[in-house]
């Protein structure tokens, strides 16, 4: 049950759950997804990109609602387009907020279970509602739900049949931070049970918390894929920012300024912010600098190791 990383190492037992080969999709003259290839196994993967990058188009291709204009899209080894039986193994949470407003949360989830042909629809629906933590609101009409509750009931409906592949389009929209955290826990837990989960987002901290695996889509093209820290390390031409706390920041700053590997030093409240080109070189420098200046270092943290900066970089390149 090893969480497969991408690109898929092929000694794994099963074929990758999701596989795109040179997939492209265009609408008239507008290219929404351009020559994208990747494969995903079990685990949580974040699909990132600014608005209009083609995330929704990609998810719709995976969900079988769009045929690729070129290339191939396979989910669980099959082409999802025009093959309804594939939905037995796919759970889809679309981006649009609307859910049947006149149904109660429970009725909606049960409806999904029945449409999946489940015999134990009642208990499955109760269980699914419980997984997203909506028990208290289960018997209220969805029309009375808040945005976050609607998102959760959509997720409950999508995972009621325990799909092998779960596709979520902006699932955290409208959720409050606590709901976000518990939804993330749920996704990680499902991934732990061998499910393949792909969710899209344009908010980067969401992705950071859950999985380390990301796919970055920029203007329809796959700009990066893999572990986001690894991706960050590959981008050597962009300076790293490091936050340092020490017993005497001012003194340390003057020492660091003298070193050619340091681009800039900025004195902040109780901390130093240092910019450098090479992380490994800096590790040596900081150790010596601390000793020569006679300053005790209390904290050395790479400040910009956030997806935001990775993303910024990829978009601007």
């Amino acid at each position: 049950m090893t969480a497969q990383t991408l690109p898929a190492g092929d000694q794994a037992v099963a074929a990758p759950a999701i596989e795109l080969a040179n997939a492209a999709r265009w609408y008239g003259n507008v290219v929404a997804v351009n020559d994208v290839s990747f494969s995903l196994g079990a685990g949580v993967t974040g699909l990132l990109g600014p608005n209009g990058a083609g995330k929704t188009t990609l998810l719709h291709m995976l969900a079988g609602f769009l045929a690729p204009s070129a290339g191939t899209v396979h989910v669980l080894g099959r082409s999802p387009h025009r093959d309804p039986s594939v939905y037995r193994q796919i759970g889809l949470v679309p981006e649009r907020e609307s859910v049947y407003a006149f149904l109660t949360g429970y009725e909606y989830v049960r409806f999904n279970a029945r449409l999946q042909g489940m015999r134990n629809a009642d208990s499955a629906a109760r269980a699914s509602i419980a997984r997203v933590g909506l028990e208290d609101a289960a018997d209220r009409a969805i029309g009375t739900y808040s945005k976050g509750m609607r998102q959760r009931v959509k997720v409950a409906g999508a995972l009621v049949h325990d799909p092998q592949v779960l596709l979520l389009d902006e699932p955290f929209n409208g959720m409050d931070p606590r709901q976000r955290l518990s939804m993330m826990d749920l996704l990680v837990e499902m991934a732990g049970a061998g499910r393949t989960i792909l969710f899209s987002s344009h908010i980067l901290e969401e992705v950071e918390r859950i999985g380390t695996e990301i796919l970055v889509l920029v203007a329809g093209r796959l700009a990066a894929s893999g572990d986001f820290r690894a991706i960050r390390a590959l981008m050597t031409d962009r300076p790293h920012t490091i936050t340092i706390r020490s017993s005497d920041d001012r003194r340390l700053a003057t020492t660091l300024m003298a070193d050619p590997a340091v681009f800039a030093v900025e004195l902040k409240e109780n901390a130093l912010s240092v910019q450098t080109a090479h992380l490994s070189a800096f590790r040596r420098i900081i150790a010596t600098a601390g000793r020569t200046a006679g300053v005790r270092l209390t904290e050395v943290v790479p400040a910009d190791e956030s997806l935001e900066s990775v993303f910024d970089y990829l978009v601007r390149r």
Binding site: T241, E266, L267, K268, E269, S273
Partner: peptide, 9 residues
């Protein structure tokens, strides 16, 4: 985030 704090003193 960092630029504005330069004159924090």
């Amino acid at each position: 985030m960092s630029a504005g704090n330069r004159l924090s003193a």
